[in-house]
């Protein structure tokens, strides 16, 4: 399984980091150009639900393997990792948990909004908060875990 060499490749690492930074910069910069305020994307409650669902979902599913996966995943952001089926599986499961967390964040925001329809001015803000939960879930799922899943696959090592 781990027959691939994990030699450090400076060009690969530079392109990897440049790609990751460029991905997130393009998303945020596009939002700012469209007239958005970055602060409005930050809703702690939504972030807690999405990130908490992913973290604790993976912890109870994979336990010690997940704890071993964390440093490897962070290292994979700057360096080509060794192909590993377990880590590829954890990255794939993380996408599922991100979807579940994003879905729950929307449902809970719906409950909050329905409970406060007496105050129409707050409805727009609560809907924006619900959308920010979807945004965080998508960014983590498509921007991070798809990348990690591919990085730990055999295809990336060929």
């Amino acid at each position: 399984m781990n027959e691939h060499d994990n030699t450090f490749d400076l060009t690969d690492s530079i392109l990897r980091v440049f790609g990751i930074i460029g991905f997130f910069t393009a998303v945020i910069f596009g939002f700012v150009v469209a007239g958005g305020n970055v602060i409005t994307l930050v809703h702690p409650a939504e972030i807690i639900i999405v990130v908490g669902t992913i973290f604790f979902g993976l912890l109870c599913t994979h336990r010690s393997k997940f704890l071993a996966y964390l440093p490897k995943a962070f290292l994979a952001l700057v360096r080509k990792p060794v192909a590993n089926r377990e880590y590829c599986q954890i990255s794939d499961n993380a996408r599922g948990y991100a979807a579940a967390g994003g879905g729950m964040a929307v449902i809970l925001s719906l409950i909050c909004t329905m409970s406060n329809l007496d105050d129409p001015e707050s409805v727009g803000l609560r809907v924006a908060a619900a959308m920010s939960g979807v945004f965080v879930a998508m960014l983590l799922s498509q921007g991070l875990f798809v990348y990690l899943r591919y990085s730990f696959s055999e295809n990336a090592s060929r």
């Binding site: 996408r95 991100a98 979807a99 994003g102 879905g103 929307v106 449902i107 925001s109 719906l110 909004t113 329905m114 809907v127 619900a130 979807v134 879930a137 998508m138 799922s141 498509q142």
Partner: peptide, 14 residues
């Protein structure tokens, strides 16, 4: 209706 269909949009996009 928008809030009810939000989870569908999320899962579709994911």
């Amino acid at each position: 209706w928008f809030l009810l269909f939000c989870p569908f949009l999320l899962v579709f996009l994911l």
